[in-house]
Design a protein around this nucleic acid. Sequence first.
DNA 1: CGCCGGGTTTGAATCGTTTCATAATACGAG
DNA 2: CTCGTATTATGAAACGATTCAAACCCGGCG
Lengths: 334, 334
Amino acid sequence: MAASIKEVAALAGVAVGTVSNVLNHPDRVAPATRERVQGAVETLGFVRNDAARQLRAGQSRTIGMIVLDSSNPFFAAVARAAENEATLHGSDIIMGNSGNDPDREARYVTLFEEQRVQGVLISPAGDISARIGALRDRGVAAVLVDREGGPGDHSSVSVDDTAGGFMAAEHLLDTGRRRLAFVGGSPGIRQVADRLEGALKAVSEHPDASLEVLEAADMTVLAGRAVGQELVERSRDRLPEAIFCANDLLAVGVLQSLLLINGLRVPEDVALIGYDDIDFAQSTVVPLSSIRQPAEEIGRTAVTLLQEQLADAHAPARQVRFTPELVARQSTRS
Amino acid sequence: MAASIKEVAALAGVAVGTVSNVLNHPDRVAPATRERVQGAVETLGFVRNDAARQLRAGQSRTIGMIVLDSSNPFFAAVARAAENEATLHGSDIIMGNSGNDPDREARYVTLFEEQRVQGVLISPAGDISARIGALRDRGVAAVLVDREGGPGDHSSVSVDDTAGGFMAAEHLLDTGRRRLAFVGGSPGIRQVADRLEGALKAVSEHPDASLEVLEAADMTVLAGRAVGQELVERSRDRLPEAIFCANDLLAVGVLQSLLLINGLRVPEDVALIGYDDIDFAQSTVVPLSSIRQPAEEIGRTAVTLLQEQLADAHAPARQVRFTPELVARQSTRS
DNA sequence: CGCCGGGTTTGAATCGTTTCATAATACGAG
DNA sequence: CTCGTATTATGAAACGATTCAAACCCGGCG
């Protein structure tokens, strides 16, 4: 159905090699011939078969990217920045969503390997350092995104989640709250574990403070709402004074159930802080305090690190680590 | 670097065809041989080269999807639903972001054509019906998403934007507002034009009502904030009584500047309604009225229609059209 | 007039997989 | 013991683009 280079050659009355040259090295072809070939390409509606090209080349121009949750605005922002940066370098990015599911993650890694992508940007769900090692052995560059690489082996772009967790809890403590709660997703998620660890550290520095840990089914608005519901069903005096959510989506959900459904006041009855500082954080019912991560820079840097690896396979792995930043808004006012 | 089927065959002491059979038709191979081959695959870390496979097959198992703006939660939801549905059918989806830029859109279409994708799901930015026609001629199925197909030629999944625009304006009029404003992106965007048209129709039915049209640079929170800023700088009596934004992101931005920055009250001073009913709409400072579109169904249906086309190239194009729904919240209370 | 050198063009070889007609083998029945 | 059949294995051909050594053409120079 689709025309091949051979048919173009036949129509233009030249050899296949010439057509290929018109496509890839126009300067090597005499102007008259070039036009004749371009005419043939036009009339046949020829579109280059990328599979054949790649097969010959042994490698594609594509970068694979696996994100934990593309419907989380934070990851969407990271992905967008990466996309822009890649376009600048003449690469295309194709994306996959693991949804925090190690199986789906593995499927995408395989898919990308089969496609012989140049490299992979990945926010790991499970423990895939073994898999990444295998990738590198096979000559596929990889950069961890939003997760620190092991000791010197993988390049990575991360944000210091422990510091972020510390900042969040510290802020709550600074504003006079003592009975804190942490709402996270599965403790298997590294970001959740690290943020919790930071929070625990802050709390441990105040002998009179406590931190209760709650687990949400998911890191979504809906799951946040469910946890919030659970909380308000307790007797009032067992309610925490402040809640730290592992991301803004959870915080928004908790906020909804506290406030809209149960008539509690934020921050008077309960203070609330999220994580990521997504665009919506400042527009919520009560503007949400949060810990900001530099999404754009993360995406851009990830691509840059990957390009470094591509340019020189023996370039040392680099770990870039950003520091998050507290953004205090009304939801934690004292 | 990467092992090929040939090396696997050599190591296992069988012919290449046998290895291929182990990979694709394990039942045709004797158990003993199968295990020997699988062992070789294991030790060599063999990964199938998809380019070669596709070249031979002439087609891939991939579906290409082009969205207008993946950082808009509405599109993210559509994409996610499509992804799930495709996975169910054993296809993979790769995504591209046009960002409403016809050039980027064209680049992605080309990329997908070169990859010989099974089909394309596309929310068109520019006028690409010509391009889609070319795709079909070449045997690539296409489904328009969130835009109605022309008369009988393309399959499409859309939502009646004119009806939605009408509903929004009608609702504002019903609650007693008369001087309305419409905030949209570029009028070149079909959704914007249609929603405006619907609103105009509603307004024209009320002789004492008026509709002022404002254009935002973009359909983002930031652009919304800019337009809101412009509005509040006017003298108070020239302020509209109600604002209809072409999507929720714009509405959130407008809300921010009205309320947080300028101390106006919503809905008392100005009523506000958005479009899409994204998850955050109910969590904004003042819960946002909106027009809901069934994102999940749109994504799912798009894939279904594509599968129909794939199953039978001569299946008639189908147009599925959903009707949006008004969700009234506090921001338009009278 | 023959040869040289440049710019052009040619077309066979190659990439790795799948397919399929054919060959090899094993096993039972006669 | 032989033939027929069923099961399994073989390996050449094909997919379509790129590459590259070789062929070709043509004007200029000795």
